[in-house]
Amino acid sequence: MRQLIESVNDTLKGQLDLEQHGGRTFEGVTVRVAQRVLALAAAIWHNHKTGQPITRSLIA
């Protein structure tokens, strides 16, 4: 469980960098963060339910 949490945290840190996605307003940043978190959660859930060996992959 700890490895999963650390892995998700590392992924989010890379995806939420303001310079990479161009967030300029609080609302824009909020939307981008929500999009990333929901996409990652959906991928992990789907891969877990389908028995994929790598749950954090969008192409597993």
Results as ranks from 00 to 15, higher is better:
18 L>F: 09
26 F>K: 13
6 E>W: 12
2 R>A: 13
52 Q>K: 15
8 V>E: 08
31 V>P: 00
30 T>E: 14
49 K>A: 11
22 G>I: 05
52 Q>T: 03
12 L>M: 15
43 A>M: 03
16 L>F: 08
23 G>H: 05
33 V>G: 01
9 N>L: 09
27 E>Y: 03
30 T>F: 12
49 K>N: 05
57 S>N: 11
7 S>W: 05
32 R>P: 00
4 L>Q: 10
30 T>V: 05
49 K>S: 10
52 Q>R: 15
46 H>E: 07
21 H>Q: 01
37 V>E: 01
17 D>M: 07
27 E>N: 07
10 D>R: 14
48 H>R: 12
21 H>T: 01
51 G>C: 04
50 T>A: 13
18 L>D: 12
15 Q>F: 00
41 A>V: 10
58 L>D: 02
40 L>V: 12
55 T>I: 15
26 F>R: 14
42 A>R: 10
56 R>T: 13
28 G>N: 09
51 G>V: 09
56 R>C: 02
7 S>C: 11
43 A>T: 09
52 Q>P: 01
60 A>I: 01
58 L>Q: 02
33 V>A: 12
51 G>R: 09
16 L>G: 06
20 Q>F: 05
23 G>E: 11
14 G>N: 13
19 E>A: 14
16 L>A: 07
55 T>E: 12
40 L>C: 06
6 E>M: 12
56 R>M: 06
31 V>A: 09
33 V>W: 04
21 H>A: 01
5 I>Y: 11
60 A>T: 07
49 K>P: 00
43 A>N: 04
10 D>P: 00
30 T>C: 14
25 T>V: 06
48 H>A: 14
51 G>N: 13
26 F>M: 10
33 V>C: 06
54 I>N: 14
4 L>D: 11
9 N>K: 10
45 W>Y: 10
34 A>Q: 11
35 Q>Y: 03
24 R>D: 02
14 G>C: 05
14 G>I: 02
34 A>S: 12
31 V>C: 01
43 A>W: 00
51 G>M: 08
38 L>Y: 02
17 D>I: 08
3 Q>K: 14
